[in-house]
Each structure stands twice: as structure tokens, then as C-alpha cells.
Simulated scan of single mutants.
Amino acid sequence: MTRIVILGAGYTGIAAAIRVAVRTRRHGGRVTLVNPSARFTERLRLHQTAAGQRLADHSIGDVLAGTGAEFVRGTVTGLDADRREVALGDGRVLGYDRLVYALGTVTDTSVPGVAAHAFTYDSHDQAVRLAGRLAELESGTLVVAGGGLTGIESVTELAEAHPGLHVVLLTRDVPGSMMGPGARAHLDRALDRLRIEVRTGAEIIKVLPGGVELAGGELVHADATLWTAGTTGLPLAGDAGLTVDGRGRIVVDEALRSVSHPEVYAVGDAAAVKQPFGVLHGTCQSGIPSALHAATALAAELRGRRPRPFRFGYVHQPVSLGREDAVIQFTRPDDSPRRWRLTGRAAVAYKEIVSSSPMATYRLLKRGLVPVALFRLTAGGR
């Protein structure tokens, strides 16, 4: 019996657990999935939760039903890579023969005051707390820090849901800087329509109880501050002696195995995955394909076969701009923008399809099937 432990039950962890359980149950695999919450959180939609919308509630145990994988609820507090053991907060210790590390990343709180005074999206509960705070405010100012895709989706969603608030987006670069000029122009019109104040070139040096302080000493008042300006890996992997990069992500080989501890696979945001065009940046677009590849590679390894290398290319940058608008920037495999884009209602429909609940994908995985779109992504983004 090969003990396979998977840490983290986000999009990637659940996909890996189902895939590896299906692929190894005839070859002696015993799969255990560990997560601190029994609820599956759709992290891509936490901005909707923060806006007060109620999303479908899925139990991790129900999602795994029929796969043979066991769910263990617990918080991982330690990893001993030499003894191949995982420590949980309640004192339990889980031994493993193979480990899939799918703990993702957390908000980078290195700027003073972020941890104490800003809201983040590190959990469903934190998004619910932000929703409660905004519901208390009939007027006032909301500051969103960070002009990446998460910041853009959040600032537009929250401005639409709370038109009485003065909403400010603070960002170092222009919003949507990764997009082409046409997509950026549509984004700018949406920000104007929602009366969002955009301040570029803003460097936040401290978050305060009632606002933020910028370099140069300017204070920007805020009744609530949402921090979306960067993520980092958990210290768990580095503390265990695994080779990590500057952001705390596990450095992996072409089969997604740790370069220092090949019995450990790392997937999604937690892995520093090299491709011909560079290291992947963490998105769900690459996360689930990496989870499926790692599960397939692990199963192949247990059968004495050589795992195939992981190949991936980006396809698009889908961004919601509230419930009634969106912009889709289609990309080359290296994530640079193509000329093509979708905007408006067509983009809303497209975004809802590609970012819909992964439950349909999980049901296919239980049957041993892989959706064609994901197969094409892992084959190079064609």
C-alpha cells in the first residue's frame, strides 16, 4: 500500500486527489486529502462573496465521494521531509510515501499594518467579514490596493454592489497593464462608469486603522482597506528543507517533482514551474492542469513508468467587471496579449463558462475522463 497524502483542498488539491485516487486504486494507492476546512472554497469568486453574494456550498467529503480518497480535516503545522511526515495542529501525524503539495499561496503581508488592518482573500471567512463591514457603511471610502486581475475584479464588483461608497484603486502600474490597448480601453471605461478613483504610481508603505500611508507621507483615508497587492508561498516548504524560490514556491522538475525531494510533487500556485518562456505565474488556468499532470505522473511512477514532462501555455485573461460587464484578453502561450478580445455581454457569458464551478470537471475526473480543454492546455496551450 502506497500512502499518498495531498495537502490543500482548493481547485488543484481536489483535482489531484480525485485523479490520483482513480489512477492508483488498482495499484495499491491510499489517498488522503488534508484541509483545515470541510467546505470547498471557490477562491476565484471570493470577490463576489465580499460583495454580499451567496454562492453554492460544497462539502469536500461530498466532492470526493466514490473516489476512495479519504478526507482529513486539520491544519498542517509542520512538514518533516526526511521522515516523510506531516504534523497537524491537533497533534496527529500523517506518514506518506508520496506527497502532493497543493497549499497554494497567501497574501503577502510584509507591508506594515496589512495583517492587522486590511482585509484579504486568504479564506472564505475573511471575504465574509469584508462583506459584513461594507454592509455597515452607507457611505465612506473603500480602498483596494493592487491593480492586478484580483484587484480589478474586486474593485469593480464592490463598486457596483455599493454605489454609495467612494471606491479608490491604488496601484503602482496602470490597471490591466498585462492587456492589449483595446482591452485596457474597455477596462478604463468600466472604471469610469463605476466612478472608481484610480491612482497609479501609488506606493503604500503602511496600512493604518483608518487608511493607508503612501511614500512621501500622504495619508489616504479608508473606512475599509482590501489588500490584493501580491502573494507569497507559505514558509512550510522552505522550513522543511525543500528547495524554494524567492517567493517561497517549491522548485520542481519537468514532471512537477521537487528538485530536492522527488517524492514530493508541487502543483498550482505553490510550485515554481519552468516553461520555455519562463516560470508560470499562479492562476487557476495553469493550476488544475498542473494538478492533473502531477497525479498522472505519480500514478505512472508507481507503475514503474517514466513520467512525461509538463507542458503548458496560456490562452486568455478573463476579467469580470461587475455582474454586467467583462473583458477577455486572448493571449499567446507566454501570456502576452494577442489582438483578439471580447467585451461586454459576450465577455460576461464567456467568463461565466470558463470560471464556472469546477464540479462538472470533478465529476468527469471521477469517471476517469479529462475535459478536452484541459488536455489541450497541458499539451501546450493550442
Score class of each variant (00 low, 15 high):
I6V: 15
T12Y: 00
R19A: 15
R23H: 06
G29Q: 10
V34T: 07
V34S: 06
A38K: 14
T41Q: 11
R43T: 01
R45W: 12
R45A: 11
H47N: 14
Q48N: 13
R54G: 12
D57M: 12
G66S: 13
T77S: 04
L79R: 10
A81C: 11
E85R: 14
G89K: 08
G91Q: 03
T109N: 02
A116E: 13
D125Y: 10
L130S: 10
E136V: 01
E136Y: 07
T141A: 02
V144F: 14
L158S: 12
A159M: 14
H162D: 06
V168N: 12
R172P: 00
M178A: 15
G180P: 07
R195P: 12
R199C: 00
R199F: 03
I204P: 03
V207Q: 02
E213T: 09
L226I: 15
T228N: 13
T231P: 02
L236V: 15
L256V: 02
Y265I: 14
D269T: 10
D269A: 15
A272S: 14
K274V: 13
V279A: 05
V279S: 04
G282R: 11
C284H: 09
G287I: 13
G287L: 10
A299H: 00
F310K: 05
G313E: 08
G313M: 08
E324V: 15
V327S: 00
F330S: 08
G344K: 09
A349G: 04
A349S: 08
A360K: 09
A360S: 13
Y362K: 04
L364R: 13
K366L: 08
V370T: 15
G380M: 07
